[in-house]
Design a protein around this nucleic acid. Sequence first.
RNA 1: GGAGAGGUGGCCGAGUGGCUUAAGGCGCACGCUUGGAAAGCGUGUUUAUAAGGAAUUAUAACAAGGGUUCGAAUCCCUUUCUCUCCGCCA
Length: 424
Amino acid sequence: MLTLAFIRENKESILKGLAVRNFKNANVIIDNIIKKDLSKRQIKTELDQALAESNKISKEIGVFFKTGEVQKANILKEKTGQLKQQSKALNETLIKIEDELNELLYQVPNIPNPLVPVGNSEEDNETIFQEGEIPKLHEGAIPHWELAKKYDIIDFELGNKITGAGFPVYKGKGAKLQRALISYFLDKNTEAGYTEVQPPLLINEASGIGTGQLPDKEGQMYHVGIDNLYLIPTAEVPVTNFYRDVLLKESDFPICNTAYTPCFRREAGSYGAHVRGLNRLHQFDKVEIVRIEHPEKSYEALEGMVNHVKGILQELDLPYRILRLCGGDLGFTSALTYDFELFSTAQDRWLEISSISNFETFQANRLKLRFKNKEGKSQLAHTLNGSSLALPRVLAALLENCQTENGIKIPEVLQKYTGFDMID
RNA sequence: GGAGAGGUGGCCGAGUGGCUUAAGGCGCACGCUUGGAAAGCGUGUUUAUAAGGAAUUAUAACAAGGGUUCGAAUCCCUUUCUCUCCGCCA
């Protein structure tokens, strides 16, 4: 969420930014926040004064009791009684205002970077780069869900039987290819300076709030009620939360982590042809990169992450493009997002396989992730993350684009991980 | 899961109702000392919020939340985590 100080001082540019997102009622909400912030501060001052007075008198009472002047002490006791009531009332008001304020703040999305194009939907996203040749498939080429069946490498029905739709079972060379992709992605990331971590796959409430999944989006996550834990929708959540309530030194930057985890998403409301096969799953594997950066370096870092993922796709030799998301398609917490899409030839459509974002201080504010700056003051850090990469759609595009009449040809960089060069 | 013991600052550790934001030590920073270093000596060393131009001041925080009291690190309740023993277990 945005900080109050930022809202107080940048009302006009915030309203402009929210307009890029087509955010409704921005004016009303921001004005309300500013008004509530003002009264919050007034009440806080009043409360502090009442408490200070009360503390002072309590000390005097202590002295009177010591010296045996009980009567004098009792007179003062009455006085503190009043003050106590007063401060109790003030405190209740303060808590109420703070709650209301937070509720309002939770509604306000991040302010888009000036590069973000105006737009309503994914049609308005800007394609900024495209590379790789779209292969000409042989006669009778088929989509990945049919290939999966033909070569018996993914069993959707079996997953359906033991869990439900969206939980496929990978088999044989399919399972091995998954493992190969994970290892390959992790190796690429660690080579680029990311530290590999293995986080828990379940998170508590505080972590969900830290990265913004809670309180609004609990419907997207699987919830283990008995222990009040949530299955992670992405490694971003546990890994970014490593740094919740942390005060860093400037010399700690940059912090670069990478993690492979399964991801669990309820995807409530998704259906239709576009969710067929591997296109949208409830459980899928993903290798994530997460960075914590000095505010002055975060956009450099974002560019670095984009170039890094580019490098991977070039090695895989798959046709991809990079989009700069428009205001309407930009995630709630993001200031600037680049999406990577692979072209799935047999489906004749682009599949999103990575989303790389700079959240600036939006997550850090909730996380209370700060660092001591040169002036010795604590300042919010910037957080970034991106996929490198999400497996199912990479697999889908790979199967479809690399299919030949004799089988599926494994990209060369993966062969040392798979131990085979053909699925047939 | 059962029984017991605990949770105090960056770390160790004292502290069972007021003079404790917190002794003492370690660490760290700066200064003095020194040919240089170590030792020694001195000073400083949490965070958040509010007020102020600033120095600063006030409030809050001793696992978390609530309660008793004029006053709570200290007493009571709830939750949580850690350790020890027992049970179960990959």
